[in-house]
């Protein structure tokens, strides 16, 4: 269970990017984080695994308080938090397999990772994850030979290799076409279900989010302005999050159309 209490963040002398964020994510729940660019979504998930340091507040994963850990200790905890990135963030000049195995780095001493002497169990698991994401035939290709969707699958396999308790997903579909986007979201969803993993997914595409997540948190100007089931995401709420717009076109449910014209 992830518990965030009164999280605040500002960069140096800039404005507050996150103002007093609190919420909990129970095990196995998939949370979609929506909101306009600059609402603080990216900062929020990067605070969780401390890629950036929060200014104030508590972040607790199970019984560990992440926000107060020293730089050395946070590395141990990062192993349990898988992260998937917008531009895949693979190391392009390494092989697909090395990219997947890099998910094990936090568990290995330097010399083993340097010599690529991974434990047999790790290699076995890595093959299994590659099979799961459908890339078993590409294991020894260089990552830059793959297409966008395939690269994102490698990114997912890398996060899985960490054997995580929580997934942080940053705009997984922003660089993909609509069909591939749905495939990727479906893959993330089904993996979370299989392993009863909880996940926080930053996502721009509201209909896509509503289709694949259990719960939606709307962020606006660094504050939570909505927290509830996807079905509760009405036009009013969207207006509160994004500002005025004709929302009828983004609604996936035909039934909701009768709510009439947006203001």
């Amino acid at each position: 269970m992830l518990k965030i209490e009164h999280l605040k963040k500002r960069y140096k002398t800039g404005p507050w990017v996150l103002k007093d964020i609190s919420f909990e994510v129970p095990d196995g729940e998939i949370v979609g984080l929506i909101g306009p660019s600059g609402a603080g979504k990216s900062s929020l998930i990067r605070c969780v695994n401390r890629l950036i340091d929060p200014t104030d507040g508590n972040i607790q994963l199970d019984d560990v308080n992440l926000s107060s850990l020293s730089a050395g200790k946070i590395r141990e905890q990062r192993r349990h938090i898988g992260m998937i990135f917008q531009e895949y963030a693979l190391v392009e000049r390494l092989s697909v397999m090395e990219n997947v195995l890099s998910g094990r780095l936090g568990y290995l001493p330097f010399w083993r990772s340097f010599l690529r002497r991974y434990p047999e169990q790790d290699i076995d698991n890595a093959f299994e994850y590659l099979e799961r994401v459908g890339l078993i035939d590409h294991a020894n290709k260089r990552a830059d030979e793959l297409s966008g969707g395939q690269r994102q699958r490698v990114g997912i396999a890398r996060a899985l290799a960490q054997d995580p308790r929580l997934l942080l997903v940053d705009e997984p579909t922003a660089s993909l076409d609509p069909k591939t986007s749905r495939q990727i979201m479906r893959l993330i969803q089904s993996i979370c279900r299989e392993k009863s993993l909880s996940a926080i997914i930053n996502i721009h595409d509201v209909p896509l989010a509503m289709q694949f997540v259990d719960r939606i948190i709307g962020l606006q100007g660094g504050e939570i302005v909505f927290d509830g089931k996807p079905e509760a995401l009405t036009e009013d709420v969207l207006t509160r999050i994004y500002g005025d717009e004709d929302w009828t076109s983004v609604k996936p449910d035909e039934d909701d159309l009768e709510n009439g014209e947006a203001a």
Binding site: L51, R78, V91, S102, L105
Partner: peptide, 28 residues
């Protein structure tokens, strides 16, 4: 590329592992 470095760091890799996996392949 900074996000590749971020990605390796986020797996819990140490500083040297990050250099070995994220930076050296890119500058080779």
């Amino acid at each position: 590329n900074g996000t590749s470095v971020e990605a390796i760091e986020s797996t819990g890799a140490s500083r040297f592992q990050t250099i070995n996996y994220a930076i050296i392949p890119q500058i080779l």
